[in-house]
Amino acid sequence: MANTATTASPPVGRKGTGFAVVTHQTLRFIRRYPLGAVGAFFVLLLIAAAAVPWAFTPLESQDPLNQSIADRLQGPSTAHWFGTDELGRDLYSRIIYGARTSIVIGFGVVLIAKLLAVTFGTVSGYYGGKFDSLFQRIIDIGIAIPGLVFIIIVVQALATRLPSIGGLQPDILAIIISVAVLSSTSSSRTIRGVALSLREEQYVEAARALGARDRRIMTRHIVPNLTAVVIVAASLQVGGAVLLESSLSFLGYGVQPPAPSWGRMLNDARSQLTKAPHLAIFPGLAVFITVFSFNMLGDALRDKLDPRLRGSN
C-alpha cells in the first residue's frame, strides 16, 4: 500500500498546472484576507448581476418594468422579495437591473481616471522642468474644485452635448467623463510623486546608460512599478465613484430614466417614507454593500500588493 502511494502519479491538481495554481492562490487569499474575500465575492456577484440581470430574477413577478397599480407600495413578500414601488413595480428586480448602471459608472470612471493619471503623472514626474510646473498648476485647479457642487453643472452641460456611445445614455457618459477627469487630477499628483522617486532609482540610471530612450524607460521601468499603487487606489476609487453617482442621482442631476439607478430610487422613496420605508431601505442597502465590498477588496489588495502600507488605516 505504502509503495503505491509513493509511486502513484500525483493528483491532477498538482502544483504547476495553471488551474491548480489559481485555485491554490485563491484559497490562500481567502484564508489570509477573509474580509477581502467576502468583498471580492460580492464584487463578482455584482458584475454577474450587471452582465446578466435576468439570471437573478427567476420569478415571473420579478419584472423591473411591469406596472401593476393594484400591487403598489406592498411590503416584502414571496412574490416581491423587496416589495413594490409607487407604480407597483417589483423593487428587487429594479435593484438587480440597477447594478449595471452602478458597475458601468464605477469601473468606467476608474478606468479612465487611472489611464489619465498614469499617463500624465508619469510624464510630468519623469521629465520635470517647465512642463511639470505648468502641468501641476492645471492639477491645482482640479484639486481646488469643490467636487459635488461643480459636477452638478458639468454633468448637465455635457449630457445634452454627448451622443450615446456603445448603448450608454449620454448622461451616464457625462457622469463617467466628468468624475473621471476630476478624480484623475489628485491621483496623477500621487503618481507623479512615485514617478519622481523612481526616476532616481539605479535601474533607471542603468537603463539610461545602456542608451534606452525616455519612452522605453517610462513604459518598461516606471509604469510597471506603479502597478501596486494603481490597483490598490483603483479598487478603493470604484466605491467612491458609486457613492458619488448615487448622490448625484439622488439629487436628480445624475442618471436619468429609463436607465435604473439606485440613487434615483432613493429619491423616489422620499415621498413615501412613512408609508413604505422598504423603498428607502433596499436601494440604499445595495449602494452600501457595493461600496463596502469594493473597500474591503481594496484593503486586502493593499495589504497583499503593497507591504509598505500594511496595516495603515
Binding site: G239, L243, S246, S247, F250, L266, A269, R270, L273, T274, P277, A280, I281, G284, V287, F288, I289, V291, F292, N295, M296
Partner: peptide, 21 residues
Amino acid sequence: VGLLAAPGFWIALIIISMAGR
C-alpha cells in the same frame, strides 16, 4: 468601515422614515 460605505442621505432617509413610523 460601515460609516465609510453608507451614503449619508440613506441614513437620513431611514431615520426620517423610522421616526415617522
